[in-house]
Write a protein that binds this DNA or RNA. Structure first.
Lengths: 303, 303
DNA sequence: CATTCCTATTAGAAATACTAATCCGAAACA
DNA sequence: TGTTTCGGATTAGTATTTCTAATAGGAATG
């Protein structure tokens, strides 16, 4: 497995010199002085114990050994260059890997993704929905969209939008026996809970307290592991969901959900776009970030 | 024409690390410390602006970019290694290029070469007969056999044998009207001259003087450009040649020539085997040199 | 809970690569 | 014939790269 190779820089110097049959031109190609090439080639010959050039006064020739050596080395360096180019290209044009909070993926990003495809047909997006925050130093993602407090050390963080939290329900519920006219009417309905562990996350408890509503048992109601499920249940008229504006804006627009009463609660969580430092200017990352902000700027997703 | 490549040592370090999926093992392979690999890989990633590994705690993974990069780099390094091996092999087993003084080639080496072929069937000898001394730093020769004073700066020089100079002629001349019984009898015969420019070379003038013979006009006689032609003329009974023992030993043995009278003159010229410093131990060079000395040791070629 | 395994980091040492200046010899020039 | 030019070699000193030793740290292992 262990390879046995002469010094690589000497090989490069020799290859260039052999190709040009000139140390001076090789020096030009490699941006060094002629003396450097002379040293490298001599060193290589000494290491190999084989002379590679016949040196005439104003002319170089390759020895038999040199003639055998050069083309293969040239090929090897070409291969390396091609591999580097290919890898760089892949990095630029390969799928953009975005890690997204689960529900945000389902309720915000996916419905809008076709618009991105229209705008940037050359960029394939790979959406990786995940519950937990991804460690960019470990995982091979180009960027992420996360709800949180904006503390992502070691990453470039851009605030995409602040979110509001308010109750939503199916319009059917408004037509039923107990239309939701005031928060107090919630007692006639099932509360749909987002079963998120994080305590900072706004939940019915917070909201009811802020709205000054009493007499509603928190423990009651349906629980779901993801916001998207909660929202779906609400659309299906199973109860009332407390949710972020960003996740339901399209459902509200489409009339699948309604916002029965006003009180919106400001969340201390917001939506952030994150990417490893130094990658922000990569074309595909920039394109996606720009698109995200444009989408939000349209007013359809942000408060 | 100019290639654009990341630092080659970093590429090698990355390739090894990627192959082993371990910096430590890569370090082992390249005989450096793990820290060196870590530095090189990090440096490469910084230069490319692309991360190549995902680093887990006791495990490495390649990023997409790394996965594209490694195989091609591996191939490139394999190519280099193969080229090096191939070139070395050619150097070892390719034809042994020997530059030989013209007449020595014709009269000593060529008749004996079949014996070398028998002894070392794997070594092909390329005999380049030349009049002038070859500059090994310029010309692609493995070794040389030369008559001279043994001053070959920058080369390893081995004395193959000392030579004597004496007159020879065809046995037919001994049966003619003026058999060569003493040097004085030379006046009845044509002197065959070796038309060599070098004044140190023993010629009839020297020999006649040493032998105390007078009254023979030096200007007379036939002139030839090479000793081998002089000898051939002598074999053809065209006259008497003054020649080196080494060039005629086989002809004397075979009875094509005889040595009419004693006085041999010591030449200050001798026969030397030369080869560039540091190449003496190369198998094919050593084999040929050993064979030369064995041939001479047989007593057939040396005094 | 200690140990092991593996990578990262730091600072400094060692090795390598490079440059500037100059030499040298033949070829081109005049 | 100089004389210039061209291109490689050489030398000695400098700069850069590469490497090491020591150490930290984090998760898996026993």
């Amino acid at each position: 497995m262990g390879r046995r190779l002469p010094p690589l820089n000497a090989l490069r110097a020799f290859e260039a010199a052999a190709r040009h049959l000139s140390f001076t031109k090789a020096a030009g190609e490699l941006n060094v002085t002629q003396a450097a090439i002379s040293h490298q080639v001599k060193g290589l010959e000494d290491i190999l114990g084989i002379s590679l050039f016949r040196r005439f006064n104003r002319r170089l020739m390759l020895t038999d050994a040199g003639q055998i050596y050069q083309p293969a080395l040239g090929e090897a360096f070409d291969l390396m260059e091609a591999a580097t180019r290919r890898m760089r290209l892949e990095e630029q044009t390969g799928p953009l890997k975005v890690t997204v909070a689960n529900s945000f993926a389902a309720k915000w990003l996916l419905p809008r993704l076709p618009a991105f495809r229209d705008r940037e047909p050359d960029i394939d997006v790979m959406v990786a929905a995940a519950d937990s925050v991804v460690d960019f130093t470990r995982d091979d993602f180009d960027m992420g969209i996360r709800f949180g407090l904006g503390r992502y050390p070691g990453l470039r963080v851009d605030l995409l939008f602040d979110d509001e939290v308010f109750p939503v329900c199916s319009p059917k519920l408004m037509e039923g026996p107990h239309p939701l006219l005031t928060p107090a009417d919630l007692k006639y309905h099932t509360l749909l809970h987002d079963d998120v562990g994080a305590s900072e996350f706004p939940h019915w408890g917070n909201w009811l307290e802020k709205s000054g509503v009493r007499g509603i048992r928190l423990g009651r109601g349906q629980r779901y592991s993801h916001s998207s499920l909660v929202i779906q249940a609400a659309i299906d008229a199973q109860g009332v969901a407390l949710t972020r504006s960003s996740l339901v804006d399209l459902d509200l627009e489409a009339g699948r959900l309604v916002r029965p009463f006003g009180p919106a609660m400001r969340s201390n969580y917001a939506c952030y776009v994150v990417s490893p430092h130094g990658t922000a200017d990569k074309p595909k990352i920039k394109a996606f970030r720009d698109w995200l902000f444009d989408e939000v700027g349209k007013g359809s997703g942000a408060k």
